[in-house]
C-alpha cells in the first residue's frame, strides 16, 4: 500500500485463512473483534433487501407485502418473533418457511421452483440465504419472543424437545449427545448446551450467520439439516414439522435474548 499526500493512514485487510485448528478459536475471535459490526454478513443483507423488493414470479410481485407475523409489509422486529403459528397456513412457521409461503402466495411461484435450491454455496448463495439475512437484520436489537401460546406452538415446542433427545440415525446420536453437557468440544469447536437458556440465547440470537471459514451465509434450516447429516440420518425435509419444531424448541429456550443477527461465525 502506498499513500499519497501527508495524511496518516493504517490499512488492515481482515483475511481469515486456513490455520492449525488449535489456533482457530483465538484467530476467529481476533477477526470478530476487528470487523465488529462490519461483517460480510452485511453484504448479504444488502442483496437480500434488493431481492425483497424485486418483482418476480407469475404474479410479478415483490415480497414487500409479506406478512411475517406483524402484519403485511412489516419486517421490523418480525424475525425475533418467529417461529409462530400462522392461521392462514394453519401451521407453525420459522422465518424461512414464512418467506417461502410469501413467494408462493404473493409471487405465485410453485413451492418446487422456489425451493429448488434452498442451500447455496460460496460461489452462488441461494435466494433464501439473502432474504433470510435481510429479514433477520431487521430484528437487530429486538427481544426474541417466539410464539408460545397457541396449542400448535406448544406442540411444536414439545415435539422439538422430544426430537432433541431422541436417539436416531446410524450412529445412535440425539442432539443431546453433543449438545447435552457443558464444557464439551467436538474437535476444536465448542458445543453449546442448547437445552439451556444461556447457551441457547448466545447461539440463537446470532443465526443466520456468515461463516468466515467458508464465506457462506448459513440459515437455521441449514443448521438443523447439517446436524442431521453429521448424525448420519437421511435428510430432513426443508420446512418440515421436524425441522420447524426443532427451531421452535431451540428458539423458545433462547427466549428473552436480544436478537443480534445475522451473526458472524467461524
Amino acid at each position: 500500500m502506498r499513500a499519497s499526500g501527508k495524511r496518516t493512514l493504517l490499512l488492515a485487510a481482515f483475511a481469515f485463512a486456513a490455520a492449525p485448528a488449535a489456533a482457530q478459536t483465538s484467530q476467529f475471535e481476533q477477526y470478530q473483534k476487528m470487523v465488529g459490526e462490519d461483517s460480510p454478513a452485511e453484504l448479504f443483507v444488502l442483496v437480500g433487501a434488493d431481492l425483497w423488493r424485486k418483482k418476480q414470479g407469475p404474479k410479478n410481485a415483490s415480497l414487500e407485502r409479506c406478512d411475517l407475523g406483524k402484519g403485511p409489509g412489516v419486517v421490523k422486529g418480525a424475525y425475533a418473533a418467529l417461529p409462530r403459528y400462522f392461521a392462514d397456513a394453519n401451521q407453525v412457521m420459522d422465518a424461512e418457511s414464512r418467506i417461502l409461503y410469501c413467494m408462493e402466495t404473493l409471487q405465485g411461484r410453485s413451492r418446487k421452483e422456489a425451493l429448488k435450491r434452498p442451500f447455496g454455496n460460496a460461489d452462488k448463495p441461494s435466494e433464501m440465504e439473502y432474504l433470510d439475512a435481510f429479514v433477520a437484520s431487521q430484528s437487530d436489537g429486538f427481544k426474541m419472543t417466539p410464539g408460545m401460546s397457541h396449542p400448535q406452538e406448544k406442540r411444536a415446542y414439545e415435539l422439538g424437545k422430544a426430537l432433541f433427545f431422541a436417539r436416531t440415525g446410524l450412529y445412535d446420536f440425539s442432539c443431546a449427545s453433543c449438545h447435552g453437557e457443558p464444557g464439551k468440544r467436538i474437535r476444536m469447536s465448542d458445543l453449546p448446551v442448547l437445552s439451556e437458556p444461556g447457551p441457547a440465547r448466545a447461539a440463537m440470537s446470532t443465526w443466520p450467520a456468515y461463516r468466515v471459514s467458508n464465506s457462506q451465509m448459513k440459515t437455521m434450516q441449514w443448521r438443523v439439516n447439517n446436524c442431521y447429516r453429521q448424525m448420519r440420518t437421511p435428510q430432513p425435509v426443508w420446512g418440515s414439522e421436524v425441522v420447524n419444531s426443532m427451531i421452535m424448541y431451540l428458539t423458545v429456550n433462547a427466549k428473552g435474548a436480544v436478537y443480534a443477527g445475522p451473526g458472524t461465525k467461524r
Binding site: T8, L9, L10, F16, V35, P40, V212
Partner: peptide
C-alpha cells in the same frame, strides 16, 4: 479472503 473487509484511518 473472499468478501474482504478493509479498514483505513484517514488523518
Amino acid at each position: 479472503s473472499r468478501n474482504p473487509v478493509f479498514s483505513f484511518r484517514i488523518g
